[in-house]
Amino acid sequence: MEKQAERVPCASGMRARAAEFVARVTARNRLPLDYSVASLRVVDFLVDGLRKGGADRERVSGPLLALGAYVGEVLVRRAGAVWVDLDEAQRGYFGQPVGVRMPDGRVWNPLGKVLNRFEAGGPEESLQTFYLTLHGRARRRSAA
């Protein structure tokens, strides 16, 4: 029963989920998952590896959720987003219980974006490109 509850993500647990994933993966593989925009290319590579390995979505749902948490946490740390629990209408639209709200109020779905990359692959589903073309990011202040 506890394991099922753990599978349904909530906004308050996403940062910890991402940190746990990074600690586990970087300890074994020394992957450069440092919450940078450039590290999203590594996420693209990891998702592609799961897909090319022939795993079905159900079998890799845990790693895909962890990768989605990581992508969302990059948005939180680099773009000024915050994790939010989605309302019923948003859940219906995105198919996910959590997302991120950007500084301009827009809500995005990093968990779903990772699933899209897994299911469709290809450069049009790149997670790094998703970040770089994302509307509503906080503008970085340049040093004077």
Rank of each mutant, 00 (worst) to 15 (best):
G54M: 08
S36E: 07
R139V: 05
R141G: 05
R59M: 07
G122R: 12
R106N: 12
G122E: 08
R15Q: 11
D85V: 01
V8L: 10
L50I: 09
R91Y: 03
A81Q: 05
D104V: 02
E20N: 10
G112W: 02
R78S: 12
V43R: 00
V84M: 12
N116G: 06
T26Q: 14
V76M: 06
H135W: 08
L67H: 03
D56W: 03
A38L: 10
R30V: 14
V107E: 02
P32C: 09
R139S: 13
L50P: 06
G80M: 04
R117N: 04
G95S: 13
R77K: 10
Y131I: 04
M102L: 14
N29T: 12
L86M: 10
F45M: 12
S61M: 04
L65M: 14
R77I: 08
G112M: 11
E58V: 03
G121N: 10
E58R: 08
A143F: 14
R7E: 11
C10S: 06
A66Y: 01
A66N: 14
R91L: 03
E6C: 10
R140Q: 11
K52A: 14
R140I: 07
N109K: 03
W108H: 15
D87A: 10
Y35G: 00
D34K: 13
R30G: 09
L132T: 02
P9N: 05
R106Y: 03
E2T: 11
E119W: 05
A138K: 08
R139P: 00
V74P: 00
G105S: 08
P63R: 05
Y93D: 07
V22L: 01
L65A: 10
G112K: 03
W108I: 02
R101K: 10
L46W: 01
G13I: 07
Y131R: 04
H135K: 15
E88Y: 02
G122C: 12
A27V: 07
Y70W: 04
G105N: 10
N29A: 13
V74L: 02
Q90C: 01
V60N: 05
M14S: 05
V84N: 06
V47A: 04
E88K: 11
L46E: 05
K52Y: 12
A23Y: 03
E2G: 14
D56L: 07
L33I: 07
L65H: 03
V82E: 13
S142P: 04
Q90V: 03
R41P: 01
A66I: 00
M102V: 06
V22Q: 11
N109R: 01
Y131V: 04
R78K: 15
P63Q: 07
L33N: 02
G99I: 02
A143P: 00
A81H: 01
F94S: 10
Q4I: 12
L64E: 04
L40I: 12
C10H: 09
E58S: 13
R51G: 10
N29R: 07
T26R: 15
G136P: 03
F21D: 00
A11I: 06
D87Y: 08
P63Y: 05
G62W: 09
E20S: 12
P9W: 00
F130L: 12
R51L: 08
S36C: 10
P32T: 06
R41H: 15
F118N: 00
